[in-house]
Simulated assay, not measured.
Amino acid sequence: MEILWFGVLALLLIGYFALEGFDLGVGLLLPVTADRDRAIGAIGPFVLANEVWLIAVAGVLFGAFPACEHALSANYTAVVLLLVSWVVRDMGLWFRRRLFARAFWEWVIALGSLGVCLAWGLFLAGLAGFSFPFGLLYGLLIAALFVLHGRRFLDWRLTGGGSPLVTGALAAVPALVPLVGFAGAVVGNAAPSATLTVMTFMVLPFVPVMAGAQIWVWRAFGKGPVPTYF
């Protein structure tokens, strides 16, 4: 049962990096993007659906591996930076077309996206016991992979270019490496079997529902007109 839930946790985290990666990559590209309206419109239908994966990661971590919560307190700075940057990025998306100075909010989106990348680098490096500078470098690597993913996504979404599947797989690598390295430690801190059994019957059925909803979003908005939600 512990291995099953570790697999679910790994799937959700990898899915988050692969999907939210192009959102953040497009955000990082905004300062050098000519048609920012179309770029933001391209990710518009996917933003909220992609963020659900991070919420699911947190839910599985707290429910199935509660003893691992110490990893959050041990990397408090990275966690706070992640949450603040996430809010800042989304604030820029929502306010861009609704308040003054659209260019200002576009920079807010870019800086918030960068903050999320750096926060993940600091958090994942901190789990492995690496120093703060290494965490920043890891965050910059994540940002670079997300930019590559975002660029390919825009090419696919706006001009009918190649699929972003390969760049999505690359964007997920920074999450996959620590998962492999810490698999034993995470599984060893699983919740009691009774708790995992209850979660299997009450929570696990929602995973395919979430995946199905994601597939529907891609089928509905993958091609065609670019909406203007943000």
Rank of each mutant, 00 (worst) to 15 (best):
A39S: 11
Y16M: 14
L29K: 03
P31N: 11
D23C: 07
L83I: 12
P31C: 12
F62A: 15
A74Q: 13
T77D: 11
F17C: 11
N75R: 06
L82Q: 06
D35H: 09
E51N: 14
V57P: 11
E69M: 14
R36G: 03
D35P: 04
L28W: 01
G59R: 06
P45G: 00
G59V: 10
A39V: 07
E69V: 15
L82G: 08
V79Y: 03
F17K: 03
N50I: 01
D35G: 07
A71R: 14
A67K: 13
L48P: 02
Y76V: 12
W53I: 05
Y16G: 05
G25K: 09
V79N: 02
A42T: 04
V32P: 01
G27D: 07
T77W: 12
F62V: 15
F46A: 06
D37S: 14
H70C: 00
R38Y: 00
L83H: 01
E20W: 00
V52G: 02
F62C: 11
G59I: 11
L83S: 04
G44A: 15
I40M: 14
L72E: 01
L72K: 06
V57E: 11
V88N: 10
V87E: 00
R89C: 01
V80Q: 00
E51G: 13
L24M: 12
F46V: 01
A74I: 01
D23E: 08
A18H: 05
T77N: 04
R36D: 02
F65Y: 12
V52S: 10
L48F: 11
V60W: 08
F46S: 06
G21D: 06
I43E: 02
A49Y: 03
Y16L: 15
L30H: 06
I55G: 14
A64D: 08
A67L: 14
G63Y: 06
I40T: 15
I55R: 05
G59N: 11
V60T: 12
L81D: 06
L19K: 07
W86M: 10
F17E: 10
V88R: 09
F62K: 12
L29T: 07
L82T: 03
A74L: 07
A78M: 03
G41Q: 04
F65R: 08
L30P: 04
L54V: 15
L61W: 13
G44L: 01
P45R: 03
L24N: 05
F46H: 05
F17N: 06
H70G: 05
T33K: 08
V87P: 03
V60Q: 12
R89N: 00
P31I: 04
R38C: 03
L24Y: 08
T33F: 06
L72P: 01
G41I: 03
R38E: 09
G21F: 01
V52D: 03
T33N: 03
I43T: 06
A71Y: 12
